[in-house]
Amino acid sequence: MGLALGLALGLGAALAASAAPVVDGKGARKLVFKPDGAEVAVVDLPFLSEADRKTLVVVGAQQPYYGAIAVAPTEGLRSRATLAAANYHDVDAARVAALRGCDAARKPEGAPCVIAAEIRPKGWEPRALQLSADATDGLRSEYGRRGGPRAMAISPSTGRWAVIKGQGAASRALEACADQSGATDCRIAVEDR
């Protein structure tokens, strides 16, 4: 296949923290998508061949949602600049990361990178809470359904997350999220007191 895709897990540009409401664990489980399976929306770009479009679907479906694939138009899909950014909490953050990585790797004389595909959960529709595939899995396994105070902090710009249980869970989850990613945009997404 010869497709050079760099996977940028947790490497993204800083975005403004979302003002999404904090929900409890039960409400969060109802809002998030299943952590397995992604759908790929390929952008209609004139330089992509039918084979390129099929490749984007195959490669994109193997990535955890939310994600995006950026391509340098003057270099084509099989360029070393082609980059997939996956496992973010929304497509917008993944787009920023993919474009940043692709533009850093493309030939300087070429055109700026563009988004060629977006990766979302199967059956995607807008919801009040969006978590990456890994964070969704963490919500189901680590966060749990019972057991006193607990909180999940997420970083929209990096896709990182942390779950902490016990007294002071929210402040400790924010600290753990920032320590993992170096992000300054960690916020509480799920909390039970």
Rank of each mutant, 00 (worst) to 15 (best):
Ala86Asn: 05
Gly37Arg: 15
Arg172Leu: 04
Ala97Met: 05
Pro112Ala: 15
Ile188Asp: 06
Ala19Gln: 15
Val190Pro: 07
Ala17Pro: 12
Gly76Cys: 13
Val43Cys: 07
Ala104Ile: 03
Ala170Trp: 04
Ala169Thr: 06
Ala135Lys: 01
Asp92Pro: 05
Arg29Ile: 08
Gly182Met: 10
Met1Lys: 14
Glu109Trp: 10
Gly27Thr: 15
Met152Val: 07
Arg80Glu: 07
Leu7Trp: 00
Asp92His: 12
Leu48Pro: 02
Ile188Arg: 08
Ile69Ala: 01
Asp52Gln: 06
Lys30Met: 15
Lys107Thr: 09
Gly182Gln: 11
Pro156Val: 09
Cys102Thr: 03
Ser155His: 04
Gly147Lys: 10
Cys102Pro: 01
Ala28Thr: 14
Tyr143Asp: 09
Ala151Gly: 09
Ala133Arg: 04
Pro64Cys: 07
Glu109His: 14
Pro121Phe: 09
Lys165Met: 02
Ser141Thr: 14
Ser181Tyr: 05
Gln63Ser: 10
Gly144Glu: 15
Val190Lys: 06
Ser18Tyr: 07
Tyr66Leu: 01
Arg29Asp: 15
Arg100Gly: 06
Gly10Asp: 00
Ala51Met: 10
Leu5Ser: 05
Leu11Ser: 04
Asp192Tyr: 10
Ala94Cys: 08
Gln63Met: 14
Leu7Phe: 04
Arg150Pro: 00
Ser141Tyr: 00
Val58Ala: 15
Val22Trp: 04
Gly110His: 10
Arg100Asn: 07
Gln180Phe: 05
Ile115Lys: 01
Arg100Met: 11
Pro64Ala: 06
